[in-house]
Simulated assay, not measured.
Amino acid sequence: MKRYFTYLKSSFFVVFIAIFMAGCFAQKEQKVFQVKDNFNIYDFTGTWYEVGSTKNSSNLSDIKVNFAVDNGKIRVVKTGHLPDGSSKKEQFLARFGLDDKNASMLEISRYGLIYEPLYIVRNDRYQYAMMYIGNKDISIVSRAKTIPEVVRVIYKDKAKSDGFDIGRIEWIKQR
């Protein structure tokens, strides 16, 4: 009987490793975006309003994203309201993606195991910012609940020149 459980444990381990390795090799090649080297995470911390996104699949409104540095760890908390009025909250861990702590490239993870690049490609005096999550999603954030039209145009032009489909950007309702 003991031998049977040992067999099951070792089989599970082999299957887990095989699935993990297949997932690693199946990932698409990530496009690398240019980042700024004068980024200050402490100026970036605090509450931001997400005003535009390509990843608002649950039709959230009133989305807030809070970046905090706690004991050297970067924590990201995203909250919003669902159409039925209930709240939704997601928590992420982040870390610097490069050795340079002044570069505007982080890696973000929901579960702490697999990290995805988060490029802060536009940062206008820590009042407005545009981030690319991986090479497929865009998040536009602001310290205020809206952004000027000129900032929208600049950010859409930047995303388009970087190869994104700007028609996928949803402008999020903030009350």
Rank of each mutant, 00 (worst) to 15 (best):
N102M: 07
N71P: 11
S142T: 07
K9A: 15
D162K: 02
K55V: 11
D157S: 10
V151G: 02
L93K: 05
V32S: 06
G52R: 01
K73F: 09
T79A: 03
N40Q: 11
E29K: 15
V121G: 06
D62E: 13
F67N: 13
F12P: 04
I154A: 11
D165R: 01
F96K: 05
R143K: 11
R168M: 01
I108A: 02
G97M: 08
Q30P: 02
M131V: 04
S53Q: 01
Q174R: 10
V141L: 11
G167L: 08
V15L: 15
W48Y: 12
Y49K: 07
Y115F: 15
L113D: 09
Q27C: 14
I114E: 14
R152H: 09
L98F: 05
R3T: 15
N38G: 06
E107Q: 15
I74N: 06
V32I: 12
E90C: 12
Q174I: 09
D124T: 01
F39N: 00
N40V: 14
G167M: 07
F33R: 01
K88G: 01
F20H: 12
I147C: 01
D99M: 03
R143F: 04
A26I: 10
K31C: 02
K55R: 14
A159F: 00
V150D: 14
E116G: 10
L118P: 00
V76M: 08
V14S: 04
E170V: 08
L113I: 04
Y126E: 05
A68Q: 15
Q174S: 13
F20I: 11
K28Q: 09
F20D: 11
R152K: 15
N59T: 00
D124L: 14
S86T: 15
S161T: 08
A68I: 14
Q127N: 12
Q91E: 13
I140E: 03
G80S: 08
K78A: 05
D43Q: 13
T47D: 14
K28N: 15
N66E: 08
E50H: 07
I166E: 00
S104G: 11
K36L: 11
V151L: 08
I172R: 05
V69E: 05
R125L: 08
A18H: 09
K145W: 02
G72A: 09
